[in-house]
Structure formats: structure tokens, C-alpha cells
């Protein structure tokens, strides 16, 4: 469960203070499939970064499962992300020198430090879920966009995060692949009850989510639940 209270974010641009987020109050429940929508520059990526503990608000409080993440220092915040949060990026951001298997393994080695057997079990299961088992020894530059995003999804999920943040996950994919990826994420959400929060323009995503939060100029203008 994520709760925000009076969150603001101000960027300093030289002499000028630019307020990107105004007094944001929001709460998202466990297992929700949420899209944050809005025009370019509306602040939706900033909201995602704040909720994803990548950035700290200028003022206000962000609580994730009873923990005030705005109080954590850089290292504690990194550890918190490693344990609780997964990220999916628009341009996939796989590590080019690691194979598919190694990319998914990375957070288990470097962050959670799991034993090899346990790692293998989890990775193989996820590779199967995202249908990439036969590609596991390839490198990112040998894969198509859709395949890379599947790997990225597997990597985001391998640590069993409570929340997955996805910033425009389908923006670099064609329609067919986008639909496959969206379906994949929806299935995972239903199977593991993982919270998914998207920042997106993509109608295809907006059509399938449970809740649509619209942000314009750093202010929530609409927050509606959709029943399918």
C-alpha cells in the first residue's frame, strides 16, 4: 500500500524554482494495476520516480507499507528498492555485456545475494513465464525489442517485488508486441498479486488497467477506477 501526503517536487533551474508536482495526495492499494496518464511534461515520470524511491520529494511524505521512504538515506533507499521495487524502462536498459540469463540473475547476485540453486530455480521459472527460455544465452543486442522487454520484465520480477514501476514500457514496441507485453504483465499481476504502476500514453495499456490517474501540470485532475 502506497500513501502520499502533500508531496511536492521543485526543480531548481538556475535562478528559477520550477514546481513540477503540486501537493500530491494519492494512495494505491496492493495488487492494483494503475496507469498514470497525462501529456508530455505533465509530471507523470516525476511521480513515478518519487513513488519508485528513485527521487526524493521537496516536501511531503511517501509511505510504502508503513515505511516513510522519504526518511531513508541513499544506501537504505537502494536496499529498499532492491527488496520491494522492480523497474521496467521504455528502452529496456538491459546490461549489454550480460546474457539474458545473467541480466535476470544480476539483481539476485548483486542485491539479494541468493544461493545459486535458488537463483536458477527462480530465473528458469520466469524465463518460462515470459517465454524466453530458448533465448537465455543470447545477448541483448541479439534480441528484438519485444524480446528485450520480456527479459526486462523478468528481471524486474525476479526479486519478487511488491510494486513494479513501468515508464512507457510499450513506447518502443509495435502494436502486436505491445499487446503481448501488456497481456504478459496483466497475467503476472493476477498470478502474483504484484502492484503495477505505469506512466504511459499508450491507449492499449489504458484500456486494460484498473485505475487511471490523470496528471496535468503536476496536479491530479482525474482519478477513476475502471471496472472491466
Amino acid at each position: 500500500m502506497i500513501t502520499n501526503a502533500h508531496v511536492s517536487k521543485v526543480y531548481k533551474m538556475g535562478e528559477i524554482d520550477l514546481t513540477v508536482i503540486h501537493d500530491l495526495n494519492l494512495s494505491i492499494n496492493h495488487g492494483e494495476f494503475v496507469a498514470i496518464v497525462g501529456p508530455s511534461g505533465s509530471g507523470k515520470s516525476t511521480v513515478l520516480n518519487l513513488l519508485g524511491c528513485l527521487d526524493k520529494p521537496t516536501s511531503g511524505k511517501i509511505m510504502i507499507d508503513e515505511i516513510d521512504v522519504t526518511q531513508l538515506d541513499t544506501t537504505a533507499l537502494a536496499n529498499f528498492r532492491g527488496e520491494n521495487i522492480g523497474f521496467i524502462f521504455q528502452s529496456f536498459n538491459l546490461i549489454p555485456v550480460l546474457s539474458v540469463y545473467e541480466n535476470i540473475e544480476y539483481p539476485l547476485i548483486m542485491i539479494q545475494n541468493l544461493p545459486k540453486e535458488e537463483r536458477k530455480k527462480r530465473i528458469m521459472k520466469l524465463l518460462e513465464d515470459v517465454d524466453m527460455l530458448d533465448q537465455k544465452d543470447k545477448f541483448p543486442d541479439q534480441l528484438s525489442g519485444g524480446q528485450r522487454q520480456r527479459v526486462a520484465i523478468a528481471r524486474a520480477l525476479v526479486t519478487n517485488p511488491k510494486i513494479v514501476f513501468a515508464d512507457e514500457p510499450t513506447a518502443n514496441l509495435d502494436t502486436k508486441t505491445s499487446n503481448q507485453i501488456i497481456t504478459l504483465m496483466r497475467n503476472i499481476q493476477q498470478e502474483f498479486n504484484t502492484t503495477f504502476i505505469f506512466a504511459t500514453h499508450d491507449e492499449k495499456i489504458v484500456r486494460v488497467v484498473d485505475r487511471i490517474i490523470t496528471i496535468i501540470d503536476g496536479v491530479i485532475t482525474d482519478d477513476k477506477r475502471v471496472s472491466l
Partner: peptide, 16 residues
């Protein structure tokens, strides 16, 4: 830089 951003986002601590 982007790769560093990615591993940092995933939770790699600065000391690592």
C-alpha cells in the same frame, strides 16, 4: 551512465 542508473534503480548500493 545509463547502465549505472539502471543498476542503481534496481537497488545496487553506491558502495557496491
Amino acid at each position: 551512465i545509463k547502465e549505472i542508473g539502471t543498476i542503481a534503480a534496481m537497488g545496487t548500493t553506491p558502495s557496491t
